[in-house]
């Protein structure tokens, strides 16, 4: 298989998951750089060109709240999950678990079929 095809499919699969990861990570207030590091530490590398536009989009949808504050002599923008965002996160997590369970069932049925 063409390695580019796998990479494209992998990115497509991760794209939706990243929204979930960002919302989940922002249950605790963070600014962009530390959020990126937190996600990377958990195996979810995200480049700044993807993260910052995503944060702005989620904020414009009312899922995040942000404020500029000074920390270590530098102004930084801190993000936190809003009340609406928390509700959406719960719904998305339920959806995520549903998808996960469905895929497991499909795989299980096919495994039984090939036995």
């Amino acid at each position: 298989m063409n390695p580019d095809s796998f990479e494209n499919l992998r990115l497509e699969l991760r794209r939706g998951c990243l929204v979930l990861a960002v919302l989940a990570a922002l249950r605790r207030e963070q600014y962009g750089y530390t959020l990126r590091k937190t996600l990377a530490e958990h195996g979810l590398e995200i480049d700044e060109g993807t993260l910052y536009p995503l944060l702005r989009r989620l904020e414009s949808q009312g899922l995040l709240a942000s404020e500029w504050r000074e920390e270590d002599k530098r102004k930084k923008r801190f993000y936190l999950l809003s009340a609406g965002g928390a509700e959406v996160l719960d719904q998305l997590l339920a959806e995520w678990r549903g998808i996960d369970s469905s895929i497991h069932q499909v795989l299980k049925e096919q495994d039984h079929g090939t036995d």
């Binding site: 962009g32 750089y33 910052y52 930084k76 923008r77």
Partner: peptide, 17 residues
């Protein structure tokens, strides 16, 4: 309208890195 805000955030990220 968004230029100042985006550049400030990008600047903070680059400097932090």
């Amino acid at each position: 309208q968004q230029k100042h805000d985006i550049i400030a955030e990008l600047s903070a990220d680059i400097h932090a890195q």
